[in-house]
Computed example of a mutant assay.
Amino acid sequence: MMLAFLLFVLTAAALLVWSSGGARGGSLAVPAHRSGDDDADGGAERSVGPGVFARWPRRDRAAEAMQWVTVVRRLAALLQAGRAPARVFGELSAVSTGSGPTGRWIARMCGDVHAAAQVGIPVSASLTRFASAPVPVGDRALAATARSVCAQLAACWEISERSGAPLGRTLSGVAESLESQLDAQAARDSALAGPRVTVRTLSWLPVLALGLGVLMGTDPITTLLTTWWGRLALAAGAALSIAGRWWTRALMHRAEVESAS
């Protein structure tokens, strides 16, 4: 039992070291803003952050989110160049729309909207359907961004279809607004990366302390499980750990809400 516990402690320590060097630990890089088509080719999976596991490819969620800015800017450029609003998604689907799950979903969305427009379905109706449909990109924040962008595009196209208003300048404003939102989100994530790592480290300290006690020759596990005061200390420690974890999460959530407002 002691050997199994030691293996568990060593595994937990390795995971702790790995998670401390991960994307939330300050290695989330905001991609450089480029007005051209180079944004779409920014790899969605690359090695980020220092550490032993830096050679492992990790998902660059910031780059994936910025692919939406590139797509909206391309749509605006095509419309300003005189393309028909019902055909721009077809031209966009013929070129690379990015990489990773988000890029593949964007390509699927463009192809489906174009195919629907070919049979007479309004672009706004197709975009509205995508805005309310599940987004299988493997990340909740990226899925929310995808639905939000599709909803904004649907509103723009609906207004244009009803009033005949030009879309190019409107979509340029949507792209700038989306870029500002993503920049603000990246700044919040960078500011909260340190507290997140601190909370994760403090959460593992009791387990690591037990492992240290075993390595020193004592038997803290037996004491905690077989004596009444040990059980009391174990219950109190677990309750305080859970309460501390909940409290720190509430503080970070409050900080995120206040910084977003």
Score class of each variant (00 low, 15 high):
C150N: 14
R61F: 04
F89N: 08
I221T: 09
G237F: 01
A54Y: 05
L202D: 12
G26T: 09
G100E: 04
R24W: 02
A131N: 01
A143H: 11
F53V: 08
G120R: 03
A184R: 15
V119K: 06
A13N: 08
A239W: 01
V72N: 00
L210R: 09
S126I: 01
D183C: 06
A13Q: 07
G90V: 02
H114F: 09
M2Q: 09
A54K: 08
V88D: 01
M1F: 06
L6G: 11
R108H: 07
Q118W: 00
A23L: 05
T223E: 14
A154H: 07
M2I: 09
W228K: 06
A76N: 03
V71H: 11
L127S: 11
I221S: 04
I121A: 07
P195A: 06
R162Y: 03
I242C: 13
D60K: 00
G244L: 10
A65F: 03
R231W: 08
R196Q: 10
A44L: 01
S93K: 10
T248S: 01
S261K: 06
V257F: 02
A14H: 02
F130Y: 14
A12F: 02
A154S: 14
E158A: 14
G237S: 06
L251M: 14
G103W: 04
A151H: 10
T145W: 04
L28Y: 02
S190C: 14
T227Y: 03
Q152M: 10
G211C: 00
R34Y: 11
M252D: 04
A233Q: 03
V174E: 13
R108Y: 04
A187E: 15
V214P: 05
G164P: 09
M66T: 05
R58I: 02
V95P: 07
A81E: 13
M216N: 13
S160L: 04
T223M: 15
V30A: 12
S259K: 06
L6E: 11
V207F: 03
L232N: 10
L224D: 04
F8V: 00
A81H: 10
A238C: 01
M216K: 07
S160G: 14
A144Y: 00
W18G: 11
A239K: 00
R104L: 12
V174N: 08
V207S: 04
V88K: 00
S163N: 10
Q80D: 13
M109K: 03
G111V: 06
A4M: 05
H33A: 13
I159A: 15
T70A: 14
S148H: 07
E161W: 01
A115N: 04
G22F: 04
R73K: 05
S47A: 11
V137P: 06
G36W: 05
S99C: 12
G173P: 11
A143N: 12
L215T: 11
T128E: 08
D139E: 06
V135L: 08
S47M: 06
L251D: 14
S99A: 12
E176D: 10
G111Y: 07
P50L: 12
I221W: 02
P57K: 03
S96E: 00
D39S: 12
W157T: 09
L75E: 07
I121D: 06
S177I: 01
W18L: 12
W18R: 13
A154P: 07
L171I: 08
W246F: 08
L178I: 03
A115P: 03
